[in-house]
């Protein structure tokens, strides 16, 4: 019995451990990866160092997946392109001051859209995805040092974004299932998650204003 109970709870504890590990990552960790594996992997790992990236990417993929495969597909192209564009521009301009507040605003928007269960047009979703990606790409470009190969670093961010969006959106599509009554609770779960994301966005916005 004890063994069965442990088996039942391990995914939760593993997920919590993984989240704690990710949340504890700092930009120094990304630079260690850079020294060890080069600028491509440093770029791919850099978004892991900022909670705003993790939650924003997750929220966007969740929204895309909740709208169905046809809405999620264009995001596979627009999101990485936005990251590439943002990280290219971000390397040239200083973006930091409004970055935290903009990311919080975007989180609130995505969270509210999820919580309300609104079926927005996929073109609008593409615009949101490109905008959010460009914003976070620019913010991540701040992690580049003077000796960083900008192209490899930006490519690392874009590929990481592509992988994350594809996996989370597909998992959401699989989770949400078909339009049947028996799976209605899953859609409610996704909407509830949206409200948490909006709440996190509000808290992060408050922190950004206070600091």
């Amino acid at each position: 019995m004890r063994h069965g109970s442990a088996m039942k709870h391990w995914p939760r504890s593993t997920s919590a451990g993984a989240l704690a590990l990710i949340a504890s990552a700092t930009s120094a960790n990304a630079h260690i990866i850079g020294a060890r594996l080069g600028d491509f992997y440093a770029g791919a790992a850099h978004p892991l160092t900022d909670l705003a990236d993790l939650i924003l990417w997750f929220a966007l993929a969740l929204l895309a997946g909740s709208l169905g495969p046809s809405a999620a597909r264009p995001i596979l192209l627009f999101f990485p392109l936005g990251l590439l564009a943002g990280s290219s521009v971000g390397a040239e301009v200083v973006f930091a001051p409004a970055g935290g507040l903009a990311a919080s605003g975007m989180l609130v928007l995505l969270g509210l859209l999820l919580a309300a269960g609104l079926r927005i047009h996929r073109n609008l979703l593409c615009v949101i995805a490109f905008g959010a990606a460009a914003m976070r790409g620019a913010s991540n470009a701040g992690g580049m040092g003077p000796e960083t190969n900008r192209l490899l670093f930006a490519l690392g961010i874009a590929i990481a974004g592509y992988v994350a969006i594809a996996l989370v959106a597909a998992a959401t599509v699989a989770f949400r299932g078909e339009e049947t009554v028996s799976r209605g609770w899953r859609r409610i779960a996704i909407r509830a998650l949206g409200s948490w994301i909006a709440a996190i966005g509000l808290m992060m916005g408050g922190l950004a204003l206070a600091s």
Binding site: L167, A170, V173
Partner: peptide, 15 residues
């Protein structure tokens, strides 16, 4: 494993 996960994701999304 990453490649297989991405294959699964693309199949799910019909990409």
């Amino acid at each position: 494993l990453l490649t297989l996960s991405l294959l699964w994701a693309h199949r799910r999304l019909g990409a």
